[in-house]
Amino acid sequence: MYIGYLNYVIIICWVTGGLILLTDVKAYNNASLKKEQKVSKILGWVNISIGFGLMTADFIYSHFMW
């Protein structure tokens, strides 16, 4: 499979996750939307962890299985 763009995906995951955590969580807190705040916190961490997951997968793939 063509996965030359995987590094881009990883970076985007981190960036978006970070942005969500930095901006939206705070914003929803200020607007007192509790449910949204919780969701955004989860989504932010999901993106960041997907980024890390992909990175390790890529690392394993390119170092051990290739």
């Binding site: 763009y5 978006t16 996750g17 969500i20 939307l33 932010g44 999901v46």
Partner: peptide
């Protein structure tokens, strides 16, 4: 949910992945 802002960043990696 009451607001969509957070989702706009959230689905970005997914969209990008599919696009490629």
């Amino acid at each position: 949910l009451k607001d969509h802002k957070v989702l706009s960043y959230f689905i970005l990696p997914c969209v990008f992945f599919l696009a490629m």
